[in-house]
């Protein structure tokens, strides 16, 4: 079976004008691979104010069933804005292994 291609691998496989015809295909591009540090929530300090959710420029922070917040690590670039904005200091930026 032919291996499914994630990207056009050869130059002649690139779409004309690099146009993208599939809506929302940027979702397949996991920018989380850029990350050097990841946000880790300490839910004993979290007051569930949602500032991390509001400030995340990537829109990758979401609220879970218990009302606490977590980042989708497929897309979190580790910018640290959530940790910077979190005034109860519930978020720590931890070096990726």
């Amino acid at each position: 079976m032919k291996k499914a291609k994630k990207w056009p691998e050869a130059w002649h496989e690139v779409n004309v004008g690099a146009m993208v015809f599939e809506p929302c295909s940027a979702r397949e591009y996991h920018t989380g691979s850029w990350r050097a540090r990841r946000p880790v929530w300490d839910n004993t300090r979290c007051i569930r104010c949602g500032l991390c959710y509001i400030y995340c420029p990537e829109g990758c922070v979401s609220q879970n069933a218990l009302g606490y917040f977590e980042a989708d690590l497929n897309y979190c670039k580790g910018c640290g804005i959530c940790a910077h904005e979190c005034w109860p200091t519930a978020i720590a930026m931890v070096e990726e292994a």
């Binding site: 990207w7 690139v14 004008g17 690099a18 146009m19 993208v20 015809f21």
Partner: peptide, 15 residues
């Protein structure tokens, strides 16, 4: 259709 999308080093060279 998306025209003029962002492209990083993994595809820019081919383009």
């Amino acid at each position: 259709v998306t025209m003029g999308a962002f492209a990083m080093s993994d595809i820019y060279h081919e383009m």
